[in-house]
Design a protein around this nucleic acid. Structure first.
Length: 514
DNA sequence: TGTAGTTTCGG
DNA sequence: CGAAACTAC
């Protein structure tokens, strides 16, 4: 009962946070005379709420042209994967609808980004270009070229911060180097976040461009792959800004009070499931953090859950922060002692990788996770750590192989989060887990899926299995289950891994890359 | 955000 | 004697 009341009040907070007070604050910013035409270049900020680039363009310019340019090759070597493309398709469609409602139209084009932007500017007479900043290495490089290229054509470029709570350049430790340990980073960051400006109000009215530039149909981007394996995704997700807000409100109402205690239990649905929405910028970390802070002042009973969830946003910040400062880590281990030949390159490793990908390792909690990933484009975070530990530690396969699989199959595939997560588990990244941290899937299943509900959901062959089978999988003496025997000996591989990692960790530490 | 083996605690 | 605490990896 108490929790219901909490939930209701929180929802009203969300809606309130985007209305009067800030409306007034923003209106004061509106300049007296609006001039010219602006292009608002949408990238991974597919929303109309709390969108500084859009707000500023609307406030400063007479007409606004919303543009999306599809240029996946500009993100090489990390071209968005298939699950990600499915989401993008849906999200663009949602954004396009919202813009239409606001009296405008989303112009969809194909790259190269610079050429297209210059073309659109010259055909529409636009004099200003607005965008929200991204921080991955490829986009950083591309965007500075755009800034220069557009500048040469006499256009004014304006970029804004909205993807992150903290601009990566503005936070350093006492030695003047980037933080490499989460707790130290977050201690300072959260202190700074005490003073935060509120999220911006939604833009629900836009003046249509005077000279329309023909948009390509969304379908021409060919974001939906032919195999249509993602058909089932639609029952799990609602991409787009409206879906993001719905998910957030549902979480606040149903799950926030349980978050601290329940978030580690993959069978419970008490995580936010906002990762893909955040990745595509359908909702901002500020919108979330603002609500959490506001609630923290009022409901001390929730503080554990609120802190815990804030810290998750902190990890997201930390991941983007470290990738910004150490861009090479997207493809190389942060700890350079982990060279290519540290990893398992045996002739068997290719087949082992494939069994892991298909969810046929014979270890129930791992296979359940891999099936959940395949069917929904998402995996519970606890299970991500378990499957990643099995691949990198027990099987000794390079974390990049796991990162690439996740990249293609996750709807929330995000270079910064993916890089940090995999290197953390493998023990070669920033704030590396002590090398001796090897997850025992059986023990993890026992602790976090005690009734086997998660395993039974994704592995129907276990529907009538006993608890021993749920934890350990099929045993050699038991032919009752139509399920593979475990592909490895957990105890033996753990021991071998500890020895191999210990060898690395006793080597002299290489000089820091910074 | 680890595991596993050993020691200590408390009824 | 099982649970909790401790400790090495």
């Amino acid at each position: 009962m108490n929790q219901l009341i909490h939930g209701l009040r929180l929802i009203s907070t969300v809606q309130y946070s985007g209305t009067d007070k800030q409306w007034r604050a923003t209106r004061e910013l509106i300049t007296v005379s609006k001039q010219g035409t602006a292009i608002v270049w949408f990238r991974r900020d597919l929303r109309l709420c709390d969108n500084p680039a859009l707000c500023e363009a609307v406030n400063n310019c007479k007409s606004v042209i919303p543009v999306y340019i599809h240029a996946p090759e500009e993100e090489a070597p990390w071209l968005p994967g298939q699950a990600s493309n499915w989401w993008l398709h849906k999200s663009l469609s949602a954004l396009s609808d919202s813009l239409q409602h606001a009296g405008s139209e989303l112009i969809i084009a194909k790259g190269p980004s610079l050429t297209r932007l210059q073309e659109i500017a010259s055909k529409t007479g636009a004099t200003h270009l607005y965008w929200n900043r991204l921080y991955d290495p490829m986009t950083q490089a591309r965007d500075s070229e755009i800034k220069q290229g557009m500048g040469e054509q006499g256009l004014h470029c304006h970029s804004f911060s909205s993807q992150l709570l903290i601009e990566p350049t503005t936070l350093k430790n006492k030695q003047g180097t980037p933080y490499k340990v989460f707790t130290a980073f977050w201690k300072v960051a959260r202190q700074r976040l005490q003073e935060m400006t509120p999220p911006l109000p939604p833009i629900n009215k836009l003046s249509a461009p005077k000279i329309p530039f023909p948009s390509l149909p969304l379908s021409s981007l060919e974001l939906l792959s032919k195999s249509a394996w993602y058909n089932k995704f639609e029952t799990f997700w609602q991409p787009g800004e409206r879906g993001a807000h719905k998910q957030w409100e549902q979480f606040l109402y149903n799950s926030l009070p349980y978050y601290d205690e329940q978030r580690n239990f993959p069978a419970e649905e008490h995580t936010t499931r906002l990762s893909p929405h955040l990745h595509f910028g359908e909702i901002t970390p500020k919108q979330l953090f603002w609500t959490l802070q506001h609630e923290n002042d009022q409901s001390p009973g929730l503080s554990q859950s609120l802190d815990r969830l804030s810290a998750q946003l902190g990890w997201r910040e930390f991941a983007h922060y470290t990738l910004f400062h150490f861009p090479h880590t997207a493809t190389e281990s942060m700890d350079s002692r982990f060279t290519k030949d540290h990893w398992n390159n045996s002739p068997d490793s290719r087949e082992q990788l494939e069994r892991w990908q298909r969810g046929e390792t014979g270890i129930p909690i791992v296979d359940a996770g891999m099936k959940q990933l395949w069917q929904t484009g998402w995996m519970h975070n606890r299970v991500r750590m378990i499957v990643a530990s099995l691949l990198t530690k027990n099987l000794g396969i390079h974390w990049l192989e796991g990162a690439r699989w996740f990249w293609d199959t996750l709807v929330d595939a995000d270079l910064a989060n993916n890089t940090l997560g995999w290197q953390w588990t493998a023990g070669c990244g920033v704030d590396a887990a002590p090398y001796f941290r090897v997850f025992n899937p059986a023990r993890q299943a026992e602790r976090f899926d005690p009734a086997g509900r998660y395993i039974k959901t994704w592995l129907p062959e276990f529907s009538s299995a006993d608890s021993h089978e749920l934890i350990n999988g099929r045993q050699p003496a038991n032919n009752r289950l139509s399920y593979p025997l475990p592909m490895l000996d957990l105890q033996k591989t753990r021991k071998q891994t500890l020895e191999r990692w210990q060898r690395i960790k006793t080597m002299p530490k290489p000089p820091a890359p910074h």
